[in-house]
Design a protein around this nucleic acid. Sequence first.
DNA 1: TCAGAAATGAAAATGATTTTCATTTTCACC
DNA 2: GGTGAAAATGAAAATCATTTTCATTTCTGA
Lengths: 121, 121
Amino acid sequence: MNKSELKVLGVLERVGGFASAQEVYQLLQRGNQSIGLTTVYRALQSLLDDKVVDTLRRDDGEAIYRLCGENHHHHLVCKSCGTTIEIQANAIEKWAQQMASDHGFREVGHTAEIFGICKKC
Amino acid sequence: MNKSELKVLGVLERVGGFASAQEVYQLLQRGNQSIGLTTVYRALQSLLDDKVVDTLRRDDGEAIYRLCGENHHHHLVCKSCGTTIEIQANAIEKWAQQMASDHGFREVGHTAEIFGICKKC
DNA sequence: TCAGAAATGAAAATGATTTTCATTTTCACC
DNA sequence: GGTGAAAATGAAAATCATTTTCATTTCTGA
């Protein structure tokens, strides 16, 4: 675990959720922790290999990362105004585990998002 | 639904599973159905809008598409080999409805996906 | 201190996807 | 059949995340 990886980890901690490589890079630039974009990618790859972070893809295909083992939540998003509400969902966690083990999957993760039009809109 | 979209649909039918835009393009070139890559992308986008096809991302970020049945389902995806299993989930449907109505949302939709490493990998 | 290894980052390369724009096709109407 | 506006097409250029290259800098351990 070298210096760059620690900086990237620091950002992911502060963010407390998902961030893309580009976002991590931007955030480091804003602070006085600037490291090169290439190094950000390398650090993320290395953290992935060490299973310290977790990765997903946004709808647009951009990869996003977060610290493993953070308790995660889901989102309820308004399609119109963008308001986002965090929701906990034990039901979902259990469902994902159950489905995965039914089919012999391991190292399981999941995503779930609800979207609609909120009261105000 | 125009001619290009029909050709793309034809390929997806023959493939009987997921294919990327680039793959659809290649397959059309091999047959005597050649259409431009741009048109393939446009046709896929249009089919997506019409909810005739379904999309996912490969690990490398490439988008893959397939015909979707009319019944709504979720996916269990192997991060390693890409194997995809369709799963039904009444629990999720109910959860989404419940959460949304709790917060006064309407016109509700949702996404949910489970990913992990399958038995074979 | 010194040499070799590892880390770094700027710039170029890659590859999927999107945009641009000039051309072609379709289609309703005369 | 002929006409023209609207839609479809595709080649080429642009975009953008990510990876590779490679010359330079920093570590590390003897």
